[in-house]
């Protein structure tokens, strides 16, 4: 059956022949499902099956000569040996990698949020005539390769780069700072820089939709701007904030290239680096699969949260 009847009153406009469309007078029973078949098959083969392969490798065995992974597809033959080892190592020496990853992602996401909210709020509320140009500038970073921009940062942050030239010229620091010598702060800056555009735009879209009348109502009822913001705007934008946080933090958990390019020091190793390194070395395929599986479990809750909220917004909008 179709839309729950409870949702019915929300719908706008005339709904004369609701029964007719939904109960298949005009459409044959398989008409709409058939539309979903190509994409569903695609995802079954190239999304679900690959995820299963990862599990089969993580719980599989190793080929005796070349040390490559041998996936085991039958769950009853799965061996926890490889996965157990990775788990054991995760508790012992890899723990610090998980902690780093978590720290960097949390700090970077928080910085992203503060900055992105301010920018999105400004553009949505005060953009005025400049809105179009502001939006174009906000979208601009999408048009040049992320890696190209990172490359530019490498050059800016170099000991002989512009940042250090400016800092030393202004006598803010006595010697050039070696930004690229494996500093967590540089990695976090890179993460914020790389992912913040993905946060500003959805936040903007969300804030732009907030009815200005609500704000005026708040003000008319005597609330100051700060109060209006904290009691009206912020609560209204909470779902948008959470969704945007999920959108930027999920890929950050799997990021390895920002770290590789801006640091390269073992001191800043992240979970993504473990996956990428394992995948690139001999006889470590099982390990790569195990890390992927662990990452998947770690991000499961935010993923489910995001999906639930998306599904809700689709139902109630």
């Amino acid at each position: 059956m179709s839309v729950p009847s409870g949702a019915e009153p929300v719908r706008r406009g005339p709904r004369r022949s609701h029964r007719a469309t939904d109960e298949g007078i005009h459409y044959s029973r398989w008409f709409w499902p058939s539309f979903t078949i190509p994409a569903s098959i695609w995802l079954a083969i190239l999304f679900i099956l690959p995820l299963y392969t990862v599990i089969s490798i993580a719980f599989g065995t190793v080929d005796p000569i070349f040390r490559g992974p041998l996936p085991v597809y039958e769950p009853w033959w799965w061996s926890g040996e490889q996965f157990g080892r990775v788990l054991g190592d995760s508790v012992s020496f890899y723990r610090i990698v998980y902690i780093h990853t978590f720290e960097y992602v949390v700090i970077a996401s928080a910085l992203c949020l503060v900055l992105a909210y301010a920018v999105a709020y400004y553009v949505a509320r005060y953009g005025g005539k400049r809105k179009t140009i502001l939006l174009a500038l906000l979208i601009a970073p999408f048009f040049i390769s992320y890696l190209m921009r990172m490359l530019a940062w490498i050059n800016l942050l170099d000991t002989e780069g512009y940042i250090n030239k400016i800092l030393t010229f202004l006598h803010l620091v006595p010697h050039p700072i070696d930004w690229l010598s494996g500093r967590p702060s540089t990695v976090i800056m890179g993460l914020v820089y790389g992912y913040i555009p993905y946060m500003i735009l959805p936040l903007y879209a969300f804030l732009d939709r907030i009815d200005i009348n609500l704000l005026e109502a708040g003000r008319d009822l005597g609330a100051g701007p700060a109060r209006t913001f904290f009691r009206v705007t912020l609560p209204l934008s909470r779902p948008g904030i959470l969704a945007a946080l999920v959108i930027v933090s999920l890929p950050m958990f799997g990021d390895y290239y920002t770290n590789n390019l801006l640091s390269g020091s073992p001191k800043t190793t992240m979970l993504g680096n473990l996956i990428d390194d394992a995948l690139g070395s001999t006889g470590q395929g099982n390990k790569a699969a195990a890390f992927v599986l662990i990452l998947m479990v770690l991000v499961l809750i935010p993923m489910l949260y995001y999906m639930r909220s998306t599904a809700r917004s689709l139902l109630t909008r």
């Binding site: 890929p251 958990f253 999906m307 599904a311």
Partner: peptide, 26 residues
């Protein structure tokens, strides 16, 4: 089907990349 579709949207890319690589390898 909708769940799987949304899942593919939020899945971190490295997970997707590695698993697709594995499926083509094995």
């Amino acid at each position: 089907a909708n769940f799987v579709m949304l899942l593919s949207f939020v899945m971190p890319e490295i997970i997707l990349g590695v698993s697709v690589f594995f499926v083509f390898s094995f």
